[in-house]
């Protein structure tokens, strides 16, 4: 029985602009495949239940919680993880505004904010709240994250 449980299939995923071939279990989550098969550990496990946002990645320009998405669902999509993001203004803003301490929630917050800005370059505070309330940060007061986000949008709250 157990043997059939670990039966694997080969899939091809486009991650951070590269085609990657992986042998996975059909039941593997995207988060598990990124971290455990591909060594992309920027997306973090926090709850594996869709509650914390630490695992957020961008799939076809939409932000997803990769812990509750199967990897097979991402076949033929463009997946961007934090490793695929460099020099994005939001990364710099997070550093400048001290918008993290331990940094564990940071990849998730950055991916989420980045995705928001792809859709809404000039979001209202309500919109920002709606997007970012899906992630939890236990270290900062969120005020720092708010400051970082507003600095990128180029205006005050």
């Amino acid at each position: 029985m157990a043997q059939s449980l670990v039966k694997k299939i080969g899939v091809s995923l486009e991650i951070n602009g590269e085609q990657r071939q992986v042998e996975i279990r059909p039941a593997d989550t995207l988060l598990y495949v990124l971290r455990n098969y591909l060594g992309l550990t920027g997306a973090k496990p926090g709850c594996l239940n869709g509650d914390c946002g630490a695992c957020s990645v961008i799939v076809n320009e939409k932000v997803y919680k990769s812990c509750i998405m199967l990897a097979v669902e991402a076949v033929e999509s463009k997946v961007t993880s934090i490793e695929g993001l460099s020099d994005s203004p939001i990364q710099k803003a997070f550093v400048e505004h001290f918008a993290f301490q331990c940094g564990y929630c940071t990849p998730g917050f950055i991916m989420n904010t980045h995705a928001m800005l792809l859709h809404e370059p000039h979001p209202t505070y309500e919109t920002i709240k709606e997007w970012l309330s899906s992630n939890i940060c236990r270290c900062t007061s969120y005020q720092e994250i708010e400051d970082a986000v507003f600095s990128v949008i180029g205006r005050d709250k």
Binding site: R35, N36, G39, L40, T41, G42, A43, K44, P45, S81, I82, E83, L85, S86, Q91, K92, F94, V95, E96, F98, F100, G103, Y104, T106, P107, I110
Partner: peptide, 24 residues
Amino acid sequence: KGIPRKESLDKVTGYAKYTADYET
């Protein structure tokens, strides 16, 4: 002075490694 933390860049690029990130 408000010097940014030394591990800042690692933390915003996903390179910062925590215990669970190590696997062999």
